[in-house]
Design a protein around this nucleic acid. Structure first.
Lengths: 207, 207, 207, 207
DNA sequence: GATGAATGAGGGTTCATTCAT
DNA sequence: AATGAATGAACCCTCATTCAT
């Protein structure tokens, strides 16, 4: 019952799995769940179909692993971006830019994630919600920090968190869907301005 | 900006098309495109499968008609909401509330629309983008009005439009996905406050 | 009437074959040929799949070895039972009881054997027939002995042999399939009575 | 893409189902469940695979329908045979011959049934048992009639029923498996003699 | 001998679409 | 216009077997 392969396994990370995961991501991300066939994934990476089933329970399992990987990546990027800021305001700026960049660079992956988030499959929906929550959590804690140290007003934490995420998300897709490159400096500043200072001209206009 | 199909569909008496459209909407909206079968739609409305093909080119055609109808409805609601406001600020308040209500009431329909918007089918994507644009257009014109009459600062029109739509959208789904009812007054005020006045405490903090 | 394989299998020390055979028997017998996977057998005995192929030509080969072992066991039991009787009549009583006990105790194994016997694979069918013959042979020789010494009438040897085996077999399964325990004394006596004396009341009724 | 079969279909009443059933029976009966593919059945009857699924839930459903049809046929034959007899004794003679003829003529169908009866699938097993019961019931009632009118001794009803069925079944297969034709007069008489009068020479030998 | 990842042919099932009536 | 039986391409998954280590 010796398992010599184990060393190899250890060295590759879980080589087989990872390799499949990457190939699958490429295709799922390009074509979506239903337009992708398992045959295609196997062919694309030059292995037999059965091999995939030695590493994943099925097409769905593989797909969810791809999605999860993508969200983990986003969450990580957001966390790192927040960490690089000196104060809440700078952290938020970093979050906005980081999210914009991620959405533009990983456009297809994000599409996959959002599709799933808005999909109607209960099980997957649950997963998507959990994943979204982990991203929102990063944003929320930065806003909370800003409120705590007096930088930000005492806005509703939940609403401001989802609002910020939404501003960036829809704006990013507004550009992406039109095939226009995002000018980070400009867009980032635009969103930040609205988020920090609002759109009203007059102080007196404040509610 | 004409949406003749939808109105015609609703009003013309050759009920065939309309009847099918309604039944199909119920099911597509509840189960999504891929989980819905043509058999099911036919059965639900008590006609034979072939009948559907006498009115629509195929499943996809029927589906797109459903989606289009949904977006036309949203666009109409937003237009009406904007029209009810006396000034830009009030119009924006109405837009926010109107969108929140629509998303909560027509949750499944909106999911369908968003899924499609984020989906990867080129043809459908084009459609989705057009549809989104028609909604954003309503918002954009109100913001432009506010800038024009001096109520709002000279923010970037595109960014502020997509930001507002994004704030409402993600916040709405944040609640919906958790099964929590939306307290319109509160949420609406929260979003408006951020959109109008920003989150920064200090005037000096302004960029 | 030699059964070298089975004994060798049981006794030789190259435990590999024997060990596999036993594990495989457990599972084949419990789940049948098609519901059993080679993986499962390997997992159950803690060896790698490849190991099985070092000892058996394939799944089918392994399966046939299991079946053969089972039939050899039945034949052996019947032989011993017959040997324990003082005369033909007593031997037949012993055969009936022995078969009943074997069928009840080794229910699943017998099922496997019977399934194969009634199956449609030519090669396996041949095997099954040979195996059945070896069992019937034991019965036949005892009946022949009874006829020879005048205990039994000159009934057709073939028909009486298969009849006796059939009486016991179907009766056993009649009980087993209903999950009822077999009362050996009673059932054995019931079958024996019919086999020895028939069911007719009147001597005159004799054909 | 012509479907000339349609006319035939309409004329058969539930022609579709019946026609499929017959074709399927031919193949299942010849090759057994696992060696038969749905493709093959479809091809053999010149319809598309999908057509089969319009009439049966799946391969298993189709298979069970075939089996059930076979057993119904046997039960019917036995009933008719019993009905043709003037008294219990004659009825039993008829049952024996009828069963022998059925087994020889419908050899493969019976094999299928017996395989299932001895198989290990719980659900199918239940079905098989129910089916066997319906056949045994015919035999049982005739034996009961014989006991009631004094023709037969008061043997155990259950044991004698299953014994008779078993005598005929195993004897039939003893011949069939060797490819020998069954001489009905002789075999029938041989079994009947044993069943009615037993194998013992002496009256005194009676237990 | 032992291992177990890789193989890949094969099969059951689904379902959008067609078309003769 | 309506019907619905028939179609058949497409797809996911299984699992006995092989072979490099």
């Amino acid at each position: 019952m010796t398992k010599p392969q184990f060393h190899k396994t250890l060295k590759n990370g879980q080589g087989g799995r990872t390799k499949i995961l990457k190939s699958a991501a490429d295709i799922f991300v390009r074509k979506g769940y239903h337009q992708t066939t398992v045959d295609e994934i196997a062919r694309a990476m030059g292995v037999a179909k059965g091999t995939i089933y030695n590493h994943f329970a099925g097409k769905e399992d593989l797909y969810l692993a791809v999605i999860r990987g993508g969200v983990d990546l986003l969450q990580e990027r957001l966390s790192q971006a927040a960490a690089r800021g000196k104060n809440a305001r700078q952290k938020i700026m970093n979050l906005i830019e980081s999210q914009l960049r991620f959405f533009e660079q990983e456009k297809d992956l994000v599409l996959l994630f959002l599709t799933e988030f808005f999909g109607r499959d209960a099980h997957r929906g649950r997963l998507a919600i959990d994943m979204l929550s982990s991203c929102l959590e990063v944003i929320r804690s930065v806003i909370a920090e800003g409120i705590g140290d007096g930088t930000l007003r005492e806005v509703d934490l939940e609403i401001s968190t989802s609002s910020l995420f939404g501003m960036v998300t829809v704006t990013a897709f507004h550009f992406i869907s039109q095939g226009r490159p995002i000018n980070y400096g400009e867009v980032c500043a635009g969103i930040a301005k609205i988020f920090f200072e609002g759109t009203c001209r007059e102080q007196a206009a404040r509610i």
